[in-house]
């Protein structure tokens, strides 16, 4: 038995996984999505914001991890626009600005919003955690121009802000460094609430900051984006992927179970 299982070419596993995940994407099953306490508290912070409040969204995810964390940022940006909250978009990862642009593009022309008044893309600053510290201390100095080379001191939205104390909420969407640790460290002592969205794998290590109250809400991965979409009543691409995710898990769990079965059978055989 173990020899047989061990002799299976890994490429068969790849094909099975591919087909199983593909199936519900073409034919959705419609499994229910419940909302976790983490997403609920994230939503509560956003929901309390008033029209005209200013928030920061820092897009610090790489294009590789984007599919896992990006849908969160999209859902939240849509929600903020619907609530007439103003958004300062920024990035401390070189690949960030074009991805931020992809989020705000639908609002660049139409939808009743104006670039520079309702939202802005400040672009990227090198220097990771140090750059974040510089931004918190003086935003316009760390970003003299925005992504389109417009001087930030001429942008209407930037007129009423100097440092991080001038915004209500700072959100960081991350796949690694810079991420929650850097933002929590560098915002210690500033007034805004911190909200974090990360790739699923970073959820567990971010938990201590949530439990200690250093961050007010935590989204991890596509599942949280799906929950947020459902909670905000704006179903989008994340919710559509949930069935596929369920079946994918089944394949992985079965692979583990089979491997272990073979292992224990083999061990039993060896003991005889």
């Amino acid at each position: 038995m173990e020899k047989f299982l061990a002799s299976i070419d890994r490429r068969y596993i790849y094909i099975v996984l591919l087909l199983v995940v593909l199936f519900p994407l073409i034919r959705p099953i419609g499994l229910p999505i419940s909302i976790s306490s983490w997403t609920e508290s994230f939503y509560a912070v956003i929901d309390q914001l008033q029209a005209g409040d200013i928030v920061v969204m820092s897009i610090d995810y790489s294009p590789s991890g984007g599919p896992d964390v990006g849908p969160q940022a999209v859902a939240i940006f849509d929600h903020l626009m619907a609530k007439n909250v103003k958004v300062i978009g920024v990035s401390f990862l070189a690949e960030g600005p074009p991805q931020l642009q992809q989020i705000i593009n639908p609002y660049m022309e139409g939808r009743g919003k104006t670039y520079g008044v309702d939202f802005v893309n400040l672009g990227y600053a090198a220097g990771l955690e140090t750059a974040i510290a510089a931004f918190n201390a003086d935003m316009k100095r760390a970003f003299p121009v925005d992504f389109f080379n417009t001087p930030t001191n001429t942008i209407p939205l930037m007129q009423s802000v100097t440092d991080a104390n001038d915004v209500k909420v700072v959100m960081n969407f991350a796949t690694g460094i810079p991420g929650p640790a850097e933002w929590v460290r560098q915002l210690a002592g500033f007034s805004p609430d911190i909200l974090i969205g990360v790739v699923t794998v970073m959820g567990p290590q971010t938990e201590p900051y949530y439990q200690s109250g250093q961050i007010k809400g935590l989204l991890s991965g596509l599942r949280s984006a799906a929950e947020y979409e459902v909670r905000a009543g704006m179903p989008g691409s994340a919710a559509a992927g949930m069935d596929a995710q369920s079946l994918g898990h089944v394949v992985i769990i079965l692979a583990m179970a089979l491997g272990n079965l073979a292992y224990f059978l083999g061990r039993k055989g060896g003991a005889k």
Partner: peptide
């Protein structure tokens, strides 16, 4: 979970 999202 996260990796499956990427494949999706």
């Amino acid at each position: 979970m996260g990796r499956i999202s990427l494949l999706i």
